[in-house]
């Protein structure tokens, strides 16, 4: 049976979907976004995080039964409060078989998948079949820029977007606003054009830049080198979405 590696389980994560939910943060991500604020989520191996509060080993390996068992202990509470479980990361797609098994073992809980969309179509379909809602990140539409800021091509991401829409799984597009990178008018209107009218689209959330993005790098012995100007105010251009008839909001 396939095991999973998780770097945190956080209860009452209010911004990861409807109701009271618990978010499972899976460890390991194929991208390496320059602005990643969870650098400990990128490697798929356990690693030591050091902080003034003392060292901590991030990365626990679970069998699907173990993780489902932990989550099911609060199933009644989560259901009572319109909530459920969100699988986030890192990147859930890299552990799709594990997550699919965990979801099958859950006690009928509402499931949100929070993904960057980078993975094989087969893995993605495993999750789409089981998700009630998907949070889907779109960062950059220009392939070259995408590669340069995340380390990977966006081809799979754009392909999986269409797959998701064809499956009619409801989804929310999330766009991290990175100053001078993703928040350009060109990029935002390209995103608006791309998602406009897609079946299943609920809305687009623009995520304001998190100035604490670099806070955790030192704790895992890395240097934060964003390659853009953190201090520059972001361009939260909602108008381009409006023009394309897309419900967008700044969260």
């Amino acid at each position: 049976m396939v095991n999973g590696i998780v770097f945190d389980i956080r209860e009452f994560s209010v911004h990861d979907g409807p109701g009271i939910r618990t978010t499972v943060f899976l460890k390991g991500c194929p991208l390496a976004c320059r602005w990643c604020h969870n650098p400990e989520s990128q490697s798929a191996r356990p690693q030591v995080v050091t902080s003034p509060a003392g060292p901590r080993l991030a990365g626990t390996v679970y069998t699907p039964e173990e993780l489902a068992g932990i989550l099911n202990r609060q199933a009644a509470i989560l259901k009572d409060n319109e909530g459920g479980i969100t699988f986030s990361g890192g990147e859930p797609l890299t552990q799709a078989a594990f997550i699919a098994r965990v979801i099958d073992l859950l006690d009928g809980l509402h499931v949100v998948i929070d993904t960057c969309g980078y993975g094989s179509e087969a893995s993605f379909r495993l999750l789409l079949a089981r998700a009630d809602l998907v949070y889907y990140d779109l960062k950059l539409i220009d392939p070259a820029l995408h590669r340069s800021f995340t380390g990977r091509s966006n081809r799979l991401i754009l392909h999986n977007l269409r797959v998701m829409s064809e499956c009619r799984t409801p989804f929310v597009i999330r766009v991290p606003l990175i100053p001078g990178v993703t928040d350009t008018d060109e990029n935002l209107s390209a995103i608006a054009q791309l998602v406009s009218g897609l079946p299943g689209l609920i809305r687009v959330d623009l995520l304001p830049y998190n100035p604490a993005a670099g806070a955790k790098y030192a704790a895992i012995g890395r240097k934060f080198d964003p390659g853009y100007d953190e201090a520059r105010p972001v361009n939260a251009n909602l108008a381009v979405f409006q023009a394309a008839g897309v419900d967008a909001r700044l969260t």
Partner: peptide
């Protein structure tokens, strides 16, 4: 930071209700 909008407020309300129901 947990309390951003009306939806968040409602979730905090649900947390308090959970306290009572438990």
């Amino acid at each position: 930071s947990v309390f951003r909008d009306a939806e968040d407020i409602r979730k905090v309300a649900m947390l308090v209700r959970t306290f009572a129901r438990l």
